[in-house]
Nucleic acid binder design. Structure first.
Lengths: 149, 149
DNA sequence: AAATTTTTTGGTGCAATACCAAATTTATCT
DNA sequence: AGATAAATTTGGTATTGCACCAAAAAATTT
């Protein structure tokens, strides 16, 4: 399942911190535990629990209390967009004199406020690059957009 | 006076909304009144008063109660950076298939989270363009940075 | 099964942003 | 000038995002 089946989002649905949670959960893969998220994001476990509950209520995650979370279909599709957005923006900045690390950390600060529309335009303007500075870039959604331009 | 005399800032000092206030005040020029800001930013005048007080406390504005505000030297230098940042980022996005209007409104959403270092790098990588999509771009600061590379 | 670890709950706090009502100051108009 | 109107500020309240702590609850380990 990929994001092309959920065309109804702007990319601005989630706060910066929630974006971090989802990206980590997808990159980790499978069921992820509260403690692990807390230690990676460096927040109190109670903060993690609360955020996971919010993401679950909004339909991005399945949360089994005391057991862990995993992405819903929608959540996975959405998070694929989040990761593509991060990589496209990071790649873009490296074309303007920023190192990979600089680009990556710069983008972390503002990516949550860049719309899906903008990313799709940037992405096709760049020719749907396959490799970013922090990993491979999947284009299922933006290629799809292109097809019936 | 320009920002080169205030090298001690990262560009991340102000919240998105405060950036809006300062940019408007500089673009308007001279002494600006609460009501005018309120109607342009579409907020209650009491909200404007409070924000102006915070910006004045932080040294960006002189606020004469019931009379209006104007930029301090530091505030003007800083706001010149804010406007350059906005224009550089907007121009950048127009190189990736966004229209001027799309670029401008997209940038408004995230510009407050883009660092001065990144802007200076992007700016010199672009060859210090003189014209953005929303006006002329002044380069006193980033040219200065260049001089003693 | 008892002890330990993990997770959740409930409470609190702060920053950013906004509104409303009431009070104050300034401006305008007889 | 005095009354009225307009602009501004003050004080109070609310929401969202994000964080922490202490205590309770559940799961795991020994």
């Amino acid at each position: 399942m990929n994001e092309k089946n959920y065309p109804e989002f702007t990319g601005l649905e989630l706060s910066p911190r929630k974006v971090d949670y989802l990206k980590f959960i997808l990159e980790k893969g499978g069921t992820v535990k509260t403690t692990e998220i807390s230690s990676v994001l460096k927040v109190d476990p109670s903060t993690t629990t609360k955020t996971l509950n919010e993401l679950a209520s909004a339909g991005y995650l399945n949360h089994v209390p005391y057991r862990g979370v995993d992405l819903t279909e929608m959540g996975e599709a959405y998070t694929q967009f989040l990761i593509r957005r991060h990589r496209i923006l990071s790649l873009l900045l490296t074309h303007y004199g920023l190192s990979s690390e600089e680009a990556c950390s710069e983008v972390l600060r503002f990516e949550a406020f860049v719309s899906r529309d903008a990313i799709n335009k940037i992405c096709s303007s760049m020719g749907h690059p396959m490799f970013g500075v922090c990993g491979e870039i999947s284009h299922e959604n933006c290629l799809h957009e292109e097809k019936h331009h």
